[in-house]
Design a protein around this nucleic acid. Structure first.
Lengths: 224, 224
DNA sequence: ACGAACTGTAAATGTTTTGTAAAGCGGCGC
DNA sequence: GCGCCGCTTTACAAAACATTTACAGTTCGT
């Protein structure tokens, strides 16, 4: 699901935009000041930014400039109040992709968002999704609900093995041999411990596994 | 961001020019006498100089001449008071590129600055930016927050490799082969040592890396 | 040829991961 | 519902891995 980060200090507007974006099947995130917006824009890696020009902390202008200076290419739509002096040159300089003047209509903003996303998402890298998790195999990055999850090597290897063998009963011995290799002979309980860690990091509710299932007396089954 | 060094002994003017330049998205620096102006023009490597003709210490005329004698090509705009006798011949002699007579309008100065930058900045100079660092690939010069950072050859090569492979897990072996070549076989700890040095010189806070990240059990990842 | 700077390595230190053990829970057969 | 057996969970110490610092050999420029 496409993440959109809304950076605006007006709480009402954030709420309105949030509802609107959710209704359009986007996944909204929020920041109320420039600094936290900047941090989230980097850590969250959203597909698009909606940035108010006037912000406490770092101004919207500086935020955009800083992101671009840091080679962050995330598409940006600037939200400007009716009084603000905004010209295309400034927007170009600060690296914004589009702007819209408040107050604006839902329909118009959605149209601009979709248009911008359409022209800025050319490539489809190898990203495997299941539930609300995304695994970017090439970049070795795992996101859960859009938030980066740090996986230790063994955990990551185990996850990849599950992804490659979905919907199939997998015995502990098979898992051990495939993920740990024939050279090392750890206890089969080891697999359990790592499954627990994966569940904690990736299951919506670790107590009620919906993806990393136990097959009593056999082993595990991964359900995407 | 383009650095402009203002060399003038009039504090009011410096302040005014500073605000003006900042508003126009330049990064202003200041010197109040010829000698420190000369030093900064060399150490700071600004994109452009604004130089008052009448200066304490080294005069503006000598400053320009000395810079040019030292093969410093930085574009120079001379600021002259209304009484000063300035003719094109003098400007040509001392190596200035343009001049403007005080008092001048903001708009005019900005126009001249942009015009001069346009005709003196060759399109070929490739400057890569990330966070608050700039890497001038052609001249092998690296700036952090506008200040030159001296990188040893190995450090510089490693940095360039990171710049060309952002946002990707890079194993120590890959790094060694790419940066050191297949002929030499240093210890993989060597990579760590150089990453430490890069972090110390380029990370805002070397203890909390935000750009040269560790992937435990794998290697490193460069995030611009 | 001298001193300064660079570089790879090693040793000490700090951090994260990982396998295991032990205790508690829960499903399954009866 | 009971009890067994296997699964989950927690905690932890050893191992693996990363960082830091120091240093000696080398290179480089003057």
């Amino acid at each position: 699901m496409q993440k959109i980060l809304v950076i605006d200090d007006d709480e009402n507007l954030r709420e309105t935009l949030g509802l609107m974006l959710e209704r359009e099947n986007f996944l909204p995130f929020f920041a109320s000041d420039g600094n936290s917006g900047y941090d989230q824009a980097i850590s969250l890696k959203p597909q698009l930014l909606l940035v108010d020009l006037k912000l406490p902390g770092m101004s919207g202008i500086d935020l955009c400039k800083n992101l671009r200076a840091g080679r962050v290419q995330t598409p940006i739509i600037v939200l400007s109040a009716i009084g603000d002096e905004v010209d295309k040159v400034l927007l170009l300089e600060i690296g914004a992709d589009d702007y819209i003047v408040k107050p604006f209509g839902t329909r118009e903003l959605i149209a601009r968002i979709r248009a911008l996303l359409r022209r800025t998402t050319p490539e489809t890298s190898k990203v495997i999704r299941f539930a609300n998790a995304e695994v970017d195999v090439e970049r070795r990055i795992v996101l859960n609900r859009g938030v980066e999850v740090k996986l230790a090597p063994a955990e990551y290897n185990l996850l990849i093995f599950f992804l490659h063998n979905p919907d199939r009963p997998l015995t502990r011995d098979l898992i051990l041999n495939s993920v740990w290799g024939y050279e090392s002979y750890p206890n089969t309980r080891t697999v359990d411990a790592h499954v627990v860690r994966l569940r904690q990091k990736l299951e919506p509710d670790a107590a009620v596994p919906r993806h990393f299932l136990t097959i009593h007396g056999v082993g595990y089954r991964f359900l995407p």
